[in-house]
Measured scan of single mutants.
Amino acid sequence: SDYEVNVNGIHHRFHNISEELIKFIEEALRRGEDLREIIKKVRELLG
């Protein structure tokens, strides 16, 4: 049904976003950045 496609589409989009965010955060932590600064950047990215 349309509803299922829609829900799956939304889930898929969020899954991709969270994968990208996790990579972004892991790389920043590897560079020794402060978690609070990383979260601030993530918030800015998400608008």
Score class of each variant (00 low, 15 high):
Ser1Tyr: 13
Asp2Pro: 03
Asp2Phe: 07
Tyr3Gln: 01
Tyr3Glu: 00
Tyr3Lys: 02
Tyr3Trp: 08
Glu4Met: 04
Val5Thr: 02
Val5Lys: 01
Val5Arg: 00
Val5Phe: 05
Asn6Asp: 11
Asn6Glu: 13
Asn6Phe: 06
Asn6Cys: 06
Asn6Ser: 11
Asn6Thr: 10
Val7Arg: 04
Val7Tyr: 06
Val7Trp: 10
Val7Glu: 06
Asn8Leu: 04
Gly9Pro: 00
Gly9Ser: 02
Gly9Leu: 02
Gly9Asp: 06
Gly9Ala: 02
Ile10Ser: 07
Ile10Asp: 11
Ile10Cys: 07
Ile10Trp: 07
Ile10Leu: 12
His11Arg: 14
His11Tyr: 15
His11Lys: 15
His12Pro: 00
His12Arg: 01
Arg13Phe: 15
Arg13Ser: 15
Arg13Ile: 15
Arg13Ala: 15
Arg13Cys: 15
Phe14Gln: 00
Phe14Trp: 15
Phe14Asn: 00
His15Trp: 04
His15Met: 06
His15Pro: 15
His15Asn: 12
His15Phe: 07
His15Ser: 11
His15Leu: 07
Asn16Lys: 04
Asn16His: 05
Ile17Glu: 01
Ile17Ser: 02
Ile17His: 01
Ile17Leu: 10
Ser18Lys: 05
Ser18His: 05
Ser18Pro: 07
Ser18Gly: 08
Ser18Tyr: 02
Glu19Thr: 12
Glu19Tyr: 13
Glu19Phe: 11
Glu19Val: 13
Glu20Phe: 09
Glu20Pro: 08
Glu20Cys: 03
Glu20Tyr: 09
Leu21Ser: 07
Ile22Asn: 01
Ile22Leu: 03
Ile22Tyr: 04
Ile22Ala: 04
Lys23Asn: 12
Lys23Gly: 10
Lys23Trp: 12
Lys23Thr: 10
Phe24Arg: 05
Phe24His: 08
Phe24Val: 09
Ile25Ala: 02
Ile25Asn: 00
Ile25Gly: 00
Ile25Ser: 00
Glu26Arg: 08
Glu26Leu: 06
Glu27Ala: 12
Glu27Pro: 01
Glu27Lys: 10
Glu27His: 09
Glu27Gln: 08
Ala28Leu: 12
Ala28Glu: 15
Ala28Tyr: 08
Ala28Phe: 08
Leu29Asn: 04
Leu29Asp: 03
Leu29Thr: 05
Arg30Ile: 09
Arg30Phe: 14
Arg30Thr: 13
Arg30Gly: 12
Arg30Gln: 13
Arg30Val: 13
Arg31Tyr: 10
Arg31Ile: 11
Arg31Met: 14
Gly32His: 13
Gly32Ile: 02
Gly32Val: 03
Gly32Lys: 06
Gly32Gln: 10
Gly32Thr: 07
Gly32Tyr: 06
Glu33Thr: 09
Glu33Ser: 10
Asp34Ser: 10
Asp34Gly: 13
Leu35Asn: 02
Leu35Ser: 03
Leu35Asp: 02
Leu35His: 03
Leu35Tyr: 02
Arg36Tyr: 13
Arg36Asp: 14
Arg36Glu: 08
Glu37Cys: 06
Glu37His: 13
Glu37Phe: 10
Glu37Asp: 13
Glu37Leu: 14
Glu37Gly: 09
Glu37Met: 09
Ile38Val: 12
Ile38Ser: 01
Ile38Lys: 01
Ile38Tyr: 02
Ile38Pro: 00
Ile38Thr: 05
Ile38Gln: 01
Ile38Ala: 03
Ile39Thr: 04
Ile39Glu: 04
Ile39Val: 10
Ile39Asp: 02
Ile39Pro: 00
Lys40Leu: 14
Lys40Gln: 12
Lys40Arg: 13
Lys41His: 10
Val42Lys: 00
Val42Thr: 03
Val42Asp: 00
Val42Ile: 09
Arg43Gly: 15
Arg43Trp: 13
Arg43Ile: 11
Arg43Asn: 15
Glu44Lys: 08
Glu44Arg: 07
Glu44Leu: 07
Leu45Asn: 08
Leu45Tyr: 09
Leu45Trp: 08
Leu45Lys: 08
Leu46Asp: 08
Leu46Trp: 07
Leu46Pro: 03
Leu46Lys: 12
Gly47Trp: 10
Gly47His: 13
Gly47Met: 12
Gly47Arg: 05
